[in-house]
Amino acid sequence: MDEYLFTRMYPAPLRASRTPFQRDRERIVQARAFRRLAGKTQVFTSRASDHFRSRLTHTMEVAQIARTVSASLGLNEDLAEALALVHDIGHPPFGHAGERALDRCLRRHGLRFDHNLHALRIVEHFEQRYAAHRGLNLTLGIREGIIKHSRDYTNEQYPMLAEYFLDQRPPLEAQLIDLADEIAYLTADLDDGVESGLLEIAHIRENVTVLARCYAIVEKEHPGIEDKFLFHEALQLMQNVLTEDLIENTRHNVLAIGAESLAAIRAHSERLAVFSPEVEAERLQEKQYLYDTLYTCEALSLEHDKAEEVVTALFDYWISEPEELPQGYFDEVQTEGLARVVADYIAGMTDSFILLQYAAIKRAIRR
């Protein structure tokens, strides 16, 4: 691993007992923003059932997959795990519905909300655990991976991110995080969808090729077993199929270009950590199925509408009444601007806390 990825914004003593990325992992899991993931929506709100995934449990599943893939490829497992643990730390309450609402609110002020960039603000600015500086003082390798694991940014649009090699591909450990994320939620969302009663196993088998293929295998191995147990076995097999394809196709791509260094990975014109064309087609099919049958179904659409109402109402309230912000956030207005500060405050909330704030403000307005 190239040692420049170990550099930090502020000097920090080396520890013989832990690698730099292991120390980053510990700083991440001890952060308040990481703990708050337990109270943030993945697909279903925790109010619906304690059995559904939260952002935190999803993050743990991504970390497991990331370690498996990185170990199989001989990559740095500590870097991959730390990036998996931090990859969703910038998400606001109410999942993607909350993110869309915040982005719409900020657009009115000429700004945008991007959960990757917000995650970087969290680890560099908002977390305050050290006497000498703000932020978690994470390594360059982690900070680069936070912003580049799922998309590319350009120097022209984001000159403030120039230190993160925007004209180059990220390390493989960062590239694989987005795919580990896909594997985790493609498996989990089918599971939670059936658990919720919004999806039916038979319908999934008819419309999701990769799951149907896995189901046929486990059904043959376990004849006469109840559908729900076969479904769980098929989900596990599907996760393994996707994971192994990512491993093998990434290995093939690296060998095909003769890459023997991080510099060669960075210089390549495309990302190398990708699914094979066949599995990519199946991934896209399942993703479309989930969008059509689950993410946009009436029950969840009602939740999304409520989430957007809550986020928008609170944003508008604090824009018009900035003195009602907590003092620490109010003090940031001069340097960060009111709209960004309000968005920062809302983005840090859990689902339960934002609903309490919404109820309190509705009472205050009635008075």
Rank of each mutant, 00 (worst) to 15 (best):
S196D: 02
E244H: 12
D181F: 02
E200P: 08
E182A: 10
M238V: 00
I217L: 13
E233Y: 10
L230G: 05
C214W: 15
Q157P: 00
L138A: 06
A234D: 07
Q239M: 08
R169D: 05
I225T: 13
P223W: 12
D189M: 11
Y130I: 00
Q157G: 07
R134Q: 12
E226Q: 07
R151G: 01
E144A: 03
F231K: 10
V194I: 05
Q239I: 04
Q175L: 02
G224Q: 10
G135C: 02
I225Q: 14
V194Q: 05
N137W: 01
L242M: 10
C214N: 15
D191A: 03
A180I: 03
L140H: 14
L138D: 06
G193K: 02
E144M: 07
I177R: 03
T154E: 02
E206L: 10
Q175G: 00
I217E: 14
K220I: 08
A234K: 05
E156I: 04
T187S: 09
F165I: 04
E206R: 13
E244Q: 14
V218L: 09
F229L: 14
K228S: 12
K220C: 11
V218M: 09
Q128S: 13
Y185G: 00
P171L: 06
Q175P: 00
F126S: 12
R213D: 15
G197L: 04
Y185Q: 00
G135D: 09
L136I: 00
A162R: 15
H232Q: 12
A174Q: 06
P223R: 11
L190E: 09
I177Q: 06
P170I: 02
D181W: 03
D152A: 06
L190I: 02
H232L: 11
E226M: 04
E182V: 07
E156K: 13
R129L: 15
E182N: 05
P159R: 00
H133S: 00
D191E: 11
M160K: 15
A212R: 15
D227S: 13
D191R: 09
V208T: 03
A188R: 07
G193N: 06
R134F: 13
I177S: 03
F231D: 10
L136Y: 00
I142T: 04
L190T: 04
K228N: 13
V241H: 02
Q175C: 01
R205M: 13
Y153H: 04
A132H: 06
H203D: 15
Q236H: 12
F229Y: 14
L211S: 05
H125D: 13
R151W: 05
E233P: 03
I183D: 00
L172G: 10
E226W: 08
C214G: 12
I142R: 03
L138M: 08
P159G: 01
R169F: 04
E200G: 11
L138H: 02
T139E: 07
V194E: 07
E244S: 08
P171W: 04
I201K: 08
A202M: 14
E163P: 09
H125M: 11
E124K: 12
L198T: 07
V208G: 05
D192K: 01
T154H: 01
E233K: 15
I183H: 01
F165R: 15
H149W: 03
E219G: 08
R151Y: 04
E244L: 09
I122S: 06
T243H: 04
M160Y: 14
L198S: 09
